[in-house]
Each structure stands twice: as structure tokens, then as C-alpha cells.
């Protein structure tokens, strides 16, 4: 009897111990943490990870609250035709200014830095995808009738700026790095004119930048996660 008790207790303790160890291993692995011997470096990394976690939690909260708000609005406007019309208008406007997710047919353009050996290139700068390349591609897409565009998950809205920031580019004041995945919703046939001879993609390929264009029937473009606010422009 005593032996049974002892073995049960030891089993439980072993269970707790291995459970803790494996949980810890998993957490450390998932947070992409390389444990270095440098104390200062580890501390800084831990701080960054903690803040990132806080940020992610807040973003999740925000998402949930927005969903709640939408549901509340739906409930409030259910049995009122006038309000329902307003609701439809709000939805339409949100779609146009980029505050709601959009799905539809379109193309996915990817731009990737060249993999050529830099010592073989005349100008190393030609091997990289620049902010201006991205801008030109977007301009051509808009010209071909794109209705909604996102770059690596950053939705383009009316206040979006694309600027160079060293080895990354700034979109919506968020740093975005290569490879760039540009999603555009519109008529896929006309959007894929980007690939035409003399178009911008063949031009980039001349500089050995890797490009690809893929048509898709079901694209999802995320909504703009920032805040759209006008402090100078007034409407009548």
C-alpha cells in the first residue's frame, strides 16, 4: 500500500516536471529565440518579445471589439429600412476607402531581389527591388483597373505613402521587406497586362529581378489596420 502511494506520487511529480520542461522548450522555440551567452542581448530580446506579445494581444482585442461593434450595428439596424440603407452605405464606403476586407478575382504579383552574384553586376543597386519599382507596379495595376491593392498585407488607402527606408521600404509607416507580394483585385485579364512585352515586369526581369504574376479567382485583401483621420480637410 505504501509502495503504491509512493509510486503514484512519484509518477505525478515526473509528469509535472516533464510537462513543464516540454512546455518551456516549446515556448522558447516558438518565440524564435536563440539563447545567446550575452546577457545584455538576451535581456533586450526578451523585452522586445514581451512588447510584441502585448501588441499582438491588443490587436486581437481590437479585432474582437470591431466585430462586436459590427454585430451591434447589425442588430440595431435590423428592422429599420432607413437605417438599413445607411448601413449598406457605410459598408460600401468602408470597402472603397479600405476599412473592410475585400475578396474577389485578381492577380498576385511577387517581386524578389535578384539572386545574381553581386560581383558580376555592373551596379549592385540594380539587383534590388526599390520603392520606385513597387510604386510603378502599383501605378500600372491601378491603370489597369485594380480596385483594391495590398503589399505584404498592407492595404493601400488614400493616405498611403511608399518610401525608401534603407534595405526595406515603408508602406503605411510600416516597414516591409522583400520579397514583395502585391495583391490586386480587378479583372485578372487586364491586370495581367503588367506582363506584356515592354511592360514593367519584363523591364524588371532585364535586371534579373525575379518577378511572377499569378491570376487568382479568390483573393482576399485585408483591411487597413491604421486610423484614417482628417484634421485639415473639412467637408460641407
Amino acid at each position: 500500500m505504501n509502495k503504491l502511494k509512493v509510486s503514484i506520487v512519484l509518477g505525478i511529480m515526473c509528469f509535472v516536471l516533464t510537462y513543464g520542461i516540454f512546455l518551456q522548450i516549446k515556448t522558447v522555440e516558438n518565440s524564435n529565440m536563440e539563447v545567446s551567452q550575452n546577457y545584455e542581448e538576451n535581456n533586450l530580446r526578451a523585452e522586445v518579445l514581451k512588447f510584441k506579445e502585448k501588441y499582438d494581444n491588443k490587436a486581437k482585442d481590437l479585432e474582437k471589439l470591431e466585430k462586436d461593434l459590427e454585430e451591434e450595428r447589425k442588430e440595431a439596424t435590423q428592422d429599420n429600412t432607413e437605417l438599413e440603407n445607411e448601413e449598406i452605405q457605410i459598408k460600401k464606403a468602408n470597402k472603397i476607402i479600405g476599412l473592410s476586407e475585400v475578396t474577389g478575382p485578381g492577380v498576385i504579383v511577387t517581386l524578389q531581389d535578384s539572386e545574381m552574384n553581386p560581383s558580376n553586376a555592373l551596379n549592385i543597386s540594380d539587383l534590388l527591388v526599390h520603392d520606385l519599382d513597387v510604386l510603378n507596379v502599383i501605378n500600372e495595376l491601378k491603370n489597369a483597373g485594380a480596385e483594391a491593392i495590398s503589399i505584404n498585407g498592407q492595404r493601400l488607402v488614400s493616405t498611403t505613402a511608399i518610401s525608401c527606408e534603407g534595405n526595406v521600404i515603408n508602406i503605411n509607416k510600416v516597414k516591409v521587406g522583400a520579397p514583395f507580394e502585391i495583391k490586386a483585385i480587378g479583372l485578372p485579364e487586364s491586370l495581367s497586362a503588367l506582363e506584356r512585352p515592354g511592360g514593367y515586369l519584363p523591364f524588371l526581369e532585364k535586371y534579373s529581378i525575379k518577378t511572377s504574376l499569378e491570376k487568382s479567382n479568390q483573393l482576399t485583401i485585408p483591411k487597413y489596420s491604421g486610423k484614417l483621420e482628417f484634421s485639415y480637410g473639412k467637408s460641407k
Binding site: 512519484l10 515526473c14 509528469f15 509535472v16 510537462y19 516549446k26
Partner: peptide
């Protein structure tokens, strides 16, 4: 106990 802990922990 060890095996159970490892499986559940993973």
C-alpha cells in the same frame, strides 16, 4: 509520468 508529461507538454 514522464511519457504522459512529454506528450501533453508538446
Amino acid at each position: 509520468g514522464c511519457i504522459l508529461g512529454a506528450i501533453l507538454g508538446i
